[in-house]
Simulated assay, not measured.
Amino acid sequence: MTAGAVLVFSATAGYRHASIPAGAAALAELAERQGMPARHTEDPGDLRPDALAGCAVVVFLSPTGEVLHDRARAALRGFVTGGGGFLGVHAAACAEYDWPYYGELLGARFDGHPPVQPADVHVHDRTHPATAHLPAVWRWTDEWYDFRAGPAGRGVRVLASADGTSYEGGATGADHPLVWCHRAGAGRVFYTALGHLGSAYADPDFRGHLGGALRWCAGAAE
């Protein structure tokens, strides 16, 4: 791939989100607007050192289950720790449960969710390029993930959280991070739990969220 490219990976071995095609198209458009050619794949063989050497960012777009073989795992780990960017979107928290490094990389593991419904997102950091354009309280409709453990204590920068009192059925409680970022070795890691619905990827606020995340993961913005 061309230097500074974006590789979008969305293989599934469990539940498959119908929003993946819309998400892949949106991410490609957002990346290319920033001068980063993009490619979508579901082949773990594309996660290999020679291909990743040309990438700025690898995006895991709602993969589920155990989808990587050992060579792909080693290549992804080397890419991130060596300075590459990693962006996890929505069900990225539902993949690779038997790979401890991946859980550390992402910062959380999916545990469950109530039905899709609107809720309030509290935006804590309005200086990050992924959240600077959002209001302090953002009303949004999504699938609100509960996590087995949150990213607290892992050196992460929490950018936004769900207000558990604004929707029904959540199990995480008051401290419910949704969006965060951190460093892993020399690399940059960003995760957003949002993005269940295909319609999200046409929404200007959500597209701005993903575009800012791409810029930050690529090292083009702080």
Rank of each mutant, 00 (worst) to 15 (best):
T2L: 14
A3H: 14
L7Q: 12
S10V: 07
A18I: 09
S19E: 00
S19Y: 03
I20H: 06
I20M: 08
A22S: 15
G23T: 01
A26E: 03
E29A: 15
E32R: 14
E42F: 06
E42K: 08
D43E: 13
G45Y: 10
G45P: 05
A53E: 15
G54W: 15
V58G: 00
L61R: 00
L61G: 05
T64M: 06
R71N: 14
G83S: 12
L87G: 02
H90S: 04
A91T: 10
A93S: 15
C94K: 12
D98A: 07
W99M: 13
P100M: 11
Y102E: 05
L106I: 15
G107D: 06
G112E: 10
P115C: 03
Q117V: 10
Q117Y: 02
Q117H: 04
V121Q: 00
H122P: 00
V123F: 04
R126V: 05
H128C: 08
P129M: 07
H133A: 08
H133R: 12
H133N: 10
L134C: 04
P135I: 01
W138P: 05
W140M: 12
T141S: 15
D142Y: 03
E143Q: 12
E143C: 13
Y145F: 13
D146E: 09
D146Q: 10
G150I: 10
G150H: 11
A152F: 13
S161M: 05
G164A: 14
S166A: 13
S166F: 04
G169N: 05
G169Y: 04
G173H: 11
H176P: 03
P177E: 14
H182S: 02
R183Y: 06
F190M: 07
A193D: 03
A193K: 03
S199V: 14
Y201K: 08
G208K: 00
H209W: 10
L210R: 01
G211D: 01
G212Q: 01
R215F: 01
C217Y: 00
A220C: 08
